[in-house]
Design a protein around this nucleic acid. Structure first.
Length: 795
RNA sequence: UGCCCUGUAGCUCAAUUGGCAGAGCACCUGACUCUGGAUCAGGGGGUUCCAGGUUCGAAUCCUGGCAGGGCAGCCA
């Protein structure tokens, strides 16, 4: 028999684990352009002050996955720069979790605390270069002078100390001559920067505290913003991936790397962290759940920690598949628990042998079965559609147990399990009919007296006999009593962190249901502790690694099975079983996407112009451009000047409104102002050169589309429009004969699409436009092509 | 109210960089079945946040708005 788990399910193993996303694209680009030293080095940088959770798994899969995909390596680096919160306990748990997920950091296990000497030396260099200073203001003063998000800060009175004095003070800080908080080392940034992170950020603080690794060697400790980028540089990391909230820190990251590291330098990229519905993910909140005993510990099976998921029985492969499934992007996201369940089931379906376990027993006596008789039925471990072999013997006798849920006194419509007078099949056994219900004083069913049909044993069904329901069961005499723990979402609200009312109030009181009287078939008795099963029709289970003993087995439900009956029934009752009440509503609130607030009218926009802009606006209107564009030009002084220079050059008809508009269009819409501003550069194109280009378009020498290509070429090479058009032979094609040929060619190449288009799929005209433009190297006159295409395709 | 990031199907993401708006999950229907599981086949779902503009053609470019998130720890 093959009961052991196979390494990977066929479906999940194929897909590239880290998917395709913007970071992968960046890396591919860097490799192509050789901007990262021809290699890829990443790192996973946890702070050892808490347990890893499934959100970290996303980061781990990303960093290790990318490194592996590109033949690079991923370091495990502990970002341990805060002695007051960190501990080896966490280091150990983190290492265990990463290993468990299946990643190997080889000998690249690093600690920021191991870099303290090097970091200190870099700090001294920064001081000597005048880039950092010792500030002796107290904490409150520093906070008060930092300004706010809308107001600039003020410079510290200590900001202009000499490098010598700074160095002396810093060294004395290091020697421990000062108390906590007396001085700090700050970067000389810009107290007026719109980015708060650049307002002379703190680099070092005094902390008379014992560090779990460096002991009492240091009295000063670097801040994250200092240690992190420089640790990356020290390790030769090329791509430093972190979550979105560090976006603002990137400017500082670059500032430090620019001053302290050589090429190839690391670069930081940010992605959105994972948010899971019905749970919390921040370390502080998780810690609170533990400390207030809402859960039994960091590894409580309900926790989203990797330790919790592991204890629940979730296979690491399922978590990796889940991470691949959710992707990597920059948009905030919330993921429903169904996706994780899906990943777990998908994995376990191929790994977990099926056995029978009755969760809520209800006695069944087979009245026509001999009291002393007992037999062993052969039952395969795997369903027909899982290509694995193996079976076990299941004891069968006169007295059995079935699940209470599989019997209804008063069955609803479409219920096809057991009910008075009804038949079901016992899985792997035979068909029984419920003849009599025995009740206790309260009127509850305590036993069903049933008749079994010997003709139906071993899966045989006498001709014409159709029994829809199949239920699971165990032998009363031979089944093993066990505890089964059913886990559900920890919170009732989809996003418990949202809203100010105490999130602990949203806890789900039924997140753990411990069934003390469950009964499992005896075949599981000798199995290894890590064996996972599917309890048929119930879900995936394994032994709780903490509480299960051979004498008293305790099973955790890893994930339930999909339950379409529950869905049908829930629908019939109107309300679902669970927590959909307020949860769905809460989920929807933030979305409120459509907002149809009107944008300002033209008049209002003109009204809002400053005096100077208004003057420009008038000039523009006079030169013939539309009000809309006149405003646009007026609001962008560079563009305004550029326009008028170009227009002057575009004579001989300066009063020609069409020409002025064309020019304004090009200047406003096509010139890369954004990029110019970003790179603080000049436009590498004279107004005269542009007006020459516009002239070519106006005179129909080239199409507008080609014009854009020409513009790109001009910006790249600095050549004139005429030269480029001449060189590339980009003159516009207007000859109907030639166009006809290109169109026919395109239509012939995609006959099915042409047919689809003729029969009404209008969108395909665009497709054929693209084809023709491609075939003519972009030279065809588009208006003409479209007209001809539309005629030909009769749309 | 300053700066930054982000808005594509119910959810998570694509869309070869301006040329047919797609996939997985979820949902619905059917088939199969000794698991109401799995599998298979099919289906519904879209104002690509909004409004303008450029273009033969815009999810993609431009302008203006709206919404959500982040930033004012001597945390990371």
């Amino acid at each position: 028999m093959t009961k052991t788990e196979s390494p990977s399910p066929p479906s999940a193993a194929e897909a590239s684990e880290s998917g395709s996303h913007f970071i992968r694209e960046i890396i591919e680009n860097d490799l192509r352009n050789d901007t990262c030293g021809g290699r890829v080095a990443t790192r996973f940088p946890p702070e050892p002050n808490g347990y890893l959770h499934i959100g970290h798994a996303k980061a781990i899969c990303l960093n290790f996955g990318l490194a592996e995909d590109f033949g690079g390596a991923c370091n495990l680096r502990f970002d341990d720069t805060n002695p007051e919160t960190e501990d080896v306990e966490y280091v150990e748990s983190i290492k265990e979790d990463v290993r468990w997920l299946g990643f190997d950091w080889g000998d690249r296990e690093y600690y920021a605390s191991d870099y303290f000497d090097k970091l200190y030396a870099l700090a001294e260099r920064l001081i000597q270069a005048g880039h950092a200073y010792v500030d002796s203001q107290d904490e409150a003063a520093i906070r008060a002078t930092r300004g706010t998000v809308t107001e600039p800060g003020q410079e510290s009175p200590f900001r202009n100390r000499s490098p010598e004095e700074n160095l002396d003070l810093f060294r004395r800080m290091k020697r421990g001559e000062y108390a906590d908080g007396e001085h700090v080392l700050r970067a000389r940034g810009d107290m007026a920067s719109p980015n708060m992170k650049m307002r002379d950020p703190l680099l070092y603080r005094i902390r008379h505290a014992r560090h779990y690794r460096s002991g009492d060697a240091w009295r000063i400790y670097p801040m994250y913003d200092f240690a992190h980028p420089l640790s990356d540089a020290l390790e030769g990391v090329t791509h430093s991936l972190c979550t979105l909230e560090f976006d603002n820190n990137r400017e500082l990251y670059d500032w430090l790397v620019d001053r302290c590291a050589e090429a190839p330098r690391p670069r930081q990229y940010e992605f959105a962290r994972l948010n899971l519905d019905y749970t919390v993910m921040s370390k502080r909140k998780l810690r609170r759940l533990v400390e207030e005993k809402h859960v039994t510990g960091w590894n409580d099976p309900r926790m989203p920690t990797l330790a919790g998921l592991r204890r629940r029985g979730v296979p690491p492969e399922a978590i990796r598949a889940f991470c691949a499934e959710i992707g990597v992007a920059k948009a905030d996201n919330r993921i429903g628990p169904d996706l994780l369940d899906y990943a777990i089931r998908n994995d376990l379906n191929f790994k977990a042998p099926r056995v029978l376990c009755v969760l809520r027993p209800l006695k069944v006596t087979l009245v026509n079965y001999p009291p002393d008789r007992e037999e062993e039925l052969d039952a395969p471990f795997w369903p027909h559609d899982v290509p694995r072999e193996g079976s076990r013997k299941v004891p069968f006798g006169r007295e059995l147990y079935i699940d209470r849920n599989d019997f209804r006194e008063d069955p609803p419509k479409n219920y096809y399990r057991l009910a008075p007078g009804r038949e079901v099949r016992l899985r792997h056994a035979c068909v029984i009919r419920c003849e009599e219900v025995v009740r206790n004083a309260a009127g509850e069913a305590v036993e069903l007296r049933c008749a079994y049909d010997p003709e139906t044993r071993g899966g045989k069904a006498p001709a014409g006999r159709k029994v829809r329901g199949v239920i699971h069961w165990v032998s009363a005499r031979r089944a093993i009593p066990v505890e089964a723990r059913l886990y559900d979402r920890l919170f009732r609200a989809a996003d418990p962190e949202r809203g100010e009312e105490d999130w602990a109030d949203a806890l789900n009181p039924d997140s753990l249901i411990a069934l003390q009287n469950a009964l499992v078939e005896p075949s599981v008795a000798g199995d290894p502790a890590a064996q996972r099963y599917q309890f048929e029709r119930e879900g995936y289970f394994w032994r709780d690694p903490e509480d299960s003993t051979p004498e008293r087995m305790v099973f955790n439900r890893i994930a339930p099975l999909r339950d379409t009956w529950a869905k049908i029934e829930g629908r019939a009752k109107g309300a679902g079983r669970e927590t959909t009440d307020g949860a769905e509503a809460i989920r929807k609130v933030p979305g409120n996407k459509s907002s149809s607030s009107a944008s300002p009218t033209l008049a209002e926009r003109i009204e809002n112009l400053s005096g100077r802009e208004r003057a420009h606006f008038s000039v523009n209107v006079e030169s013939g451009v539309s009000s809309d564009m006149a405003i646009g030009l007026a609001q962008k002084p560079e563009a305004h000047d550029y326009f008028h220079e170009a227009l002057a050059d575009y004579a001989p008809a300066p009063d020609d409104a069409a020409r002025a508009n064309a020019l304004a269009n090009w200047i406003l819409n096509e010139l890369p102002w954004d990029k110019i501003a970003r790179e603080k550069g000049d436009l590498p194109l004279s107004p005269k050169a542009l007006s020459a280009l516009v002239k070519l378009v106006d005179e129909d020498i080239i199409s507008a589309r080609t014009g854009k290509d020409v513009l790109a070429e001009m910006l790249a090479t600095g050549k004139s429009a005429e030269a480029i058009v001449h060189e590339k032979g980009w003159k516009q094609m207007t000859d109907p004969e030639a166009l006809r040929a290109a169109i026919d060619e395109a239509l012939a190449a995609f006959p099915d699409k042409a047919a689809a288009c003729r029969s009404g799929k209008k969108g395909l005209v665009g497709f054929f436009m693209g084809q023709v433009m491609q075939r003519t190297g972009g030279a065809a006159k588009p208006e003409l092509v479209r007209k001809m295409l539309e005629e030909q395709l009769a749309v």
